[in-house]
Design a protein around this nucleic acid. Structure first.
Lengths: 391, 391
DNA sequence: TTGTACGCGTTATCAC
DNA sequence: GTGATAACGCGTACAA
């Protein structure tokens, strides 16, 4: 074990003194007459200053920067040159936002711990598509940490961050305490899978019907004992058998719908909840579901995500069970799991289209349109992880 | 292949009419006398309105909300009640930002495509730590898509998004065209690994020295033919042998330093660049490096990240090569790769501390402090993927 | 094509 | 403990 000690070093002087540190006190009593002739100028230049330097009015300078309106080319040059020599980097975003009534920021709420959420290819792809689509419209994305304590207070950012709209990419936690806060601010909301709320746009896939198809596939292959591995049901990180009392609590929209779809078709012999949507959790669930001490071992497992399914496949290998010889496994999402030796049988959802539809919904709301819902198709892709039951 | 058709439906009326749509024109000529008695009130209430309803001044109402300053409990109640009944959700963030000179937003620039970047556990963990640390200070994170076209124009968000500071988590792309834009705005910059710039704080690990330790380990085990698999060298997505002419171009700071560290100790027989920092790219590189058509096959591979190393291990399996029997593999980062059957030999960097140090640097700059650099320790962890060369 | 006037919604300062 | 006043820096209708 080699160790390199931590080193801290200071570099140069402060290139960015706090903007307000050197600002003159605003409540000063001196008359405003001396404005043009103040000697030192410790504060950052404003559009006003640039205009003065260029010998034009502030409004003309504004037009020169925004391009909205006719400005003589020569004037524009003068303004831009003046800006250059004053070190003016362009209109102050905050002031422009206040004036325009738009911040150019869209909040995105992601579920669970960020490090778990991001490692799910579904989330990563969704976010990627969202950033892509919104960046093209000049919108940037603000990451909102999901509220951990249901019933608790949402983080202050939900109240205080500048946002033109908020996207919920949580999987649809019901009773999310941040939702009323955001809605109360009058900020348009677009929810992916959920939560549903009056005034919020909803972009979703048909989780329930999709899961039905998976269950039918297994039933058709002759599986009688099917286990289900669910994504988290609530935010509290519990795991293990999903009890009736827990099911009575409203769960995440996607988890709930996917379980309902399976049960529309067959009666699972066991339902195991994962504390997080990760490969590790899927593996643990597989061990619990398929380990030695289980009486009648299930011959098939429906996992509520590909990440979990991958963990189940791995758990099977650890247990010495062959997939699909001993156990069939079905996933959900249709994402790439590059290290899996087998192509998963799974329900493919159109993630890129989902991102696009979400961005469209955001833009529609920003344009003043009404809330509207979209449901996208899911299709079953039969891979190499399903087959007839053993024996 | 079942298909469920896409459905679009409209829900309810618009709960969020554009704020400005119904706003009165600002340049109106009417005298301001009628302010208190305007009949319909189509716009959102302001602090002014709340104050009027509560029978106090705007400044008192402001204090009631911010808590900064003494307000009688009874007065506070009246203000809050008035807000409640008017549907006032709290001070407008943009206006508050303008006044305070702070937006509460920190920009974070992430490398490559977001979907690739996020799937790297190192990045996910780093971001997670950053969000955690900054959220505690009331700061939210704005995702900035990395500029793809070096020499091109940075996305407009770099100029126009409200940000109190910007963190570069790109791995240190040199000549990043967004950097001068951000610096020019006077926004404090904290760079992780790079890019280095006067006025920017730098948080890093000792990539070069760390890599030396890895190379020494292999040399000590008797490996004479060592291959290197690098992370991307530039943003252009090229792959394959890293030519001299390409090396002459400035590369990512981390890639460059890690390669230099290896070459401080030994002369690699081959250096292969990956187009992205992904498992798939690592596998491809392994095939190129260790496939049949290679003359003298390397007996060890140094990968510049754990993600790539995992891909190399997988590629070895595909090629029928045993790790570490036929080939030793070393990674970098020390992250969890839950599906890898072997514990990687790797250089462990303190990711959580790195996130913490970055957050501290941001806070220091926000407090008006000078730019300062931090270097954190790296340590070699010998796992199960290294051993003596075959034969 | 340019300048004038005004207000976006808030908070800091000071006097009472 | 409360109120008056003055910015914060900009965009935009309108007049010139």
């Amino acid at each position: 074990m080699d160790r390199i000690d931590s080193i801290v070093r200071q570099t140069g002087a402060d290139a960015n003194p706090s903007r307000r540190a050197a600002a003159r006190p605003s409540g000063r009593k001196e008359p405003t007459i001396d404005r043009p002739s103040r000697p030192a100028r410790p504060r950052r230049p404003t559009l006003q200053d640039v205009a003065a330097a260029a010998g034009v009015s502030a409004s003309t300078a504004s037009l020169a920067f925004s391009g909205a309106g006719p400005v003589a080319e020569a004037t524009r040059r003068r303004v831009l040159d003046a800006a250059q020599s004053l070190g003016y980097a362009g209109p102050d975003p905050t002031a422009a936002s206040l004036r325009r009534g738009r911040s150019g920021v869209v909040g995105v709420v992601v579920g669970e711990r960020i490090r778990d959420a991001f490692r799910d290819p579904y989330v990563a792809t969704l976010l990627d598509g969202l950033v892509d689509a919104l960046a093209g419209e000049g919108l940037a994305i603000l990451l909102l940490p999901m509220v951990h304590d249901v019933g608790g207070q949402p983080a202050e950012q939900y109240r205080t961050a500048p946002m033109d709209a908020v996207v919920y990419a949580t999987g649809g936690l019901p009773d999310d305490p941040s939702l009323p806060v955001v809605l109360g601010r009058g900020v348009p909301v677009v929810a992916i899978e959920g939560p549903e709320a009056p005034g919020a746009s909803l972009v979703r896939i048909d989780d329930r019907d999709g899961s039905r198809h998976a269950a039918r596939l297994l039933a058709g292959l002759g599986h009688a004992r099917v286990g289900v591995v669910t994504m988290p049901w609530r935010l509290d990180g519990s795991s293990g058998a999903l009890t009736a009392s827990r099911r009575a609590l409203a769960g995440f929209a996607d988890s709930t719908a996917r379980l309902a779809g399976v049960e529309d078709v067959l009666a699972p012999v066991a339902v195991v909840e994962c504390p997080t949507n990760t490969v590790e959790a899927g593996r643990d669930a597989a061990v619990r579901l398929l380990g030695d001490d289980v009486g009648e071992r299930p011959t098939a497992v429906v996992a509520q995500s590909d990440v979990l399914a991958a963990g189940v496949v791995q758990g099977c290998r650890d247990l010495g069970l062959d997939v699909p010889g001993d156990v069939s496994v079905v996933g959900f999402d249709g994402v790439e799991i590059p290290w899996l030796p087998l192509q998963l049988t799974t329900l493919v959802q159109p993630v890129t289209e989902k991102a696009r539809a979400t961005a469209d919904a955001v833009l529609a709301r920003l344009a003043g349109g009404p809330a509207s819902d979209v449901t996208l198709p899911v299709r079953l892709r039969v891979g190499a992880t399903t087959g007839p039951p053993p024996g």
